[in-house]
């Protein structure tokens, strides 16, 4: 989904809802298409694994994605857009 011109990946898991950047900072893989296990999503292209809460990559220290707060209000999914911030680590070329 797109919020303020950014592509976000939104996940519904047994633990709740999460939103992170859609594009994997490694090679641009679509994170929304990844498998979620153990609170992390694994990119379908090259298996980089991101924590849905912190955005940290579990198998590549140089990578990180931004995370966004999600709330459910009256059956609608709200994603906090004001907090949009660049990931602390620049995406690699």
């Amino acid at each position: 989904m797109e919020v303020d011109g950014r592509q976000l990946a939104v996940f519904r898991t047994r633990q709740g809802w999460y939103a992170i950047d859609q594009s994997c900072p490694h090679r641009g893989g679509p994170l929304a298409d990844g498998i979620v296990a153990d609170g992390c999503v694994t990119c379908p292209l090259h298996d980089r694994r991101f924590d849905l809460t912190t955005g940290r990559c579990g198998n590549d220290d140089e990578l990180r994605v931004a995370t966004y707060r999600v709330e459910i209000r009256e059956d609608l999914v709200w994603v906090e857009a004001s907090g949009l911030r660049r990931p602390r680590c620049p995406a690699r070329a």
Binding site: R27, G28, G29, P30, D33, G34, I35, V36, P44, L45
Partner: peptide, 18 residues
């Protein structure tokens, strides 16, 4: 469905550009 790899959710092979 959430247990499947993307290829097996949409029955096609994902490429580098998605």
């Amino acid at each position: 469905r959430d247990a499947r790899f993307i290829n097996d959710r949409v029955h096609a092979n994902i490429q580098k550009d998605g």
